[in-house]
Design a binder for these strands. Structure first.
Length: 302
DNA sequence: AGCCAGGAAGTGC
DNA sequence: GCACTTCATGGC
């Protein structure tokens, strides 16, 4: 863990944005499996700090901390307005979303999941970074995914101003690697998917930015043409990279939770997805995050 | 030793 | 279409 001096850096950063943390919990937001490049800081922090993180998104460095019901976001106002405000989805009213979900699913389970996950925000991340991240995620575990992303960024990412951290590598950078480079990052057999996907993006054959104009169905279809991208990975890219809030990725955790809460048989992923998108509608993505976080982090009876 | 981890692709039917 | 198998790797 990096040890940094907050007070000195505060002055240099020429700005600290303060936000209420009722619907913005840093550890829930960063550790709920949607983002993999935020590091928890554990020293050199103001005394009343509950938790602090640093990270890089789209080549920009940020440090932020939480204490006494507030989030302190160390950013100049310009960077906040032009980037971080959107990144943290701060224009979205999560209280309203919670209310909608509790209306659509009045069960005690959803009420508990909503309470337990309150403070999660669905980050608006870079589609390219999400593509690579979730190709890596298949049949893998979160610590190892994080390790691979860090290794790739450290070796092949560009430098970031005001920081020792590296940016997530560009499509061009990853398209030029050897399979062995991916192996060394711990990607395992996913090396060929990653390389082929990077080459498609770098060449322009897969225009991730251009795909923003597509509707959900078209975007899903486009993503599925990429190697290593199936329905679940595509759903994650849509939710975390394109802000498609109706997307409901079905993984092992969500499958387990959904079977327990809504089915009396071993429903498959397709069945679960259809059921959830029908029940939760345009807010299925947040419901999925609540169930995922609840399933992974709460002590539930087997 | 064997199973699991935010699955996808290949094969056989 | 659908079920089954395989894939690299580290932790437990």
């Amino acid at each position: 863990m990096a040890a940094l001096e907050f007070d000195k850096e505060d002055a240099k950063a020429s700005g600290v944005i303060r936000l209420p943390s009722t619907y913005f919990d840093l550890s829930k937001t960063f550790d709920c499996g949607q983002a993999f490049r935020w590091r928890r800081l554990d020293s050199g922090l103001p005394q009343d700090t509950e938790v602090a993180y640093e990270g890089v998104a789209s080549g920009r460095y940020l440090r932020l901390r939480q204490s006494a019901g507030e989030v302190f976001l160390e950013s100049a106002p310009e960077a906040f307005e032009s980037f971080w405000k959107s990144y943290f989805d701060l224009d979205t009213d999560y209280s309203a979303i919670e209310e909608i979900l509790l209306k659509r699913d009045p069960s005690a389970a959803m009420a508990e999941a909503a309470q337990f996950g309150r403070g999660i925000r669905i980050l608006r991340q870079d589609p390219w970074e999400m593509l690579v991240t979730f190709i890596l995620s298949g049949n893998n575990n979160i610590p190892r995914i994080k390790g691979s992303i860090e290794a790739l960024s450290e070796r092949f990412g560009e430098t970031v101003p005001q920081s020792a951290l590296k940016a997530f590598p560009t499509p061009e950078a990853l398209a030029g690697l050897a399979l062995e480079d991916y192996r060394q990052a711990g990607a395992g057999y996913r090396d060929q998917y990653l390389l082929a996907a990077a080459q498609k993006v770098a060449s322009g054959e897969a225009d991730l930015e251009g795909w923003r104009v597509l509707d959900d169905e078209q975007l899903k279809k486009a993503l599925l043409t990429l190697p290593g991208v199936g329905d679940k990975v595509a759903s994650c890219i849509m939710l975390f990279g394109y802000g498609r809030r109706a997307s409901f990725p079905v993984d092992t955790w969500v499958t387990k939770m959904m079977r327990r809460l809504y089915f009396t048989h071993d429903a498959n992923a397709k069945e679960i997805k259809a059921f959830a998108e029908d029940l939760f509608g345009d807010q299925a993505g947040y419901a999925q995050q609540l169930l995922f976080h609840w399933g992974r982090n709460s002590e539930m009876e087997a």
